[in-house]
Amino acid sequence: MAEEKDLAKIKEAVKRHKKEVYVPVVPEMQLGFIHNNVDCIGCRACEIACKDKNGLAPGPRFRNVMYVEGGAFPDVYAYKVNMSCNHCAEPACLPTCPTGAIFKRKKDGIVDIDSTLCIGCRRCEAACPYGAPQFIPERNIVSKCNMCVDEIDAGRKPYCVQACMMRVLDIGDIDKLRAGTWVTKAMASHEKPVGAVKNMANPELTKPSIVFVAHSKAVVK
């Protein structure tokens, strides 16, 4: 249904649009994830809990437990790196969205996509260095982890965290997590969190809100 275009209006809109400058939201407190690469058994209960929560068909995965293995028989090692959306401080996805469907919450830094605005152009999918945005073909939209905002707003934790049989996945105030002062079962008292491991894109790209207890072979020098 082609609409009559009003040239004046378009010009006005372009002018207005050009003036928009994106200033990243600085949240009052940034929530982020912690994952213990070593103690994780790779069971993927977190993944399935997420798929069920978000009603995802096979294919798109908001959370992805990566399996890493190496060495030569019998001297081998294996560990897991578990990532979803990292609700980055400088989200690469957000400014690429032509409709402004992606937004970052002020109070806790959660990055979410408003599905009513998403037109399925998949730019965010291309922009994210961690592969978080997932295309949902049946609905022609992109969707991703929103840290289960509904659960957060109800004072609970995300489905994946609550699913973890080993209690190695958790969320918290990312600053405190980084400082090692956040109380969490994901980490033993002698363990130290790190902001990056091998097998992930350079965190300098977006400043992701995630820390890991790294496997010795995953440590980034």
Partner: peptide, 25 residues
């Protein structure tokens, strides 16, 4: 019923706990 289960909960999120609808309506 939102907010009833806050005890032992997560984050020091300030009350009141008003669950907003999801972006995926």
């Amino acid at each position: 019923g939102a907010g009833v289960m806050a005890a032992g909960g997560l984050i020091d999120l300030a009350a009141p706990r008003e669950a907003k609808a999801f972006a995926y309506e």
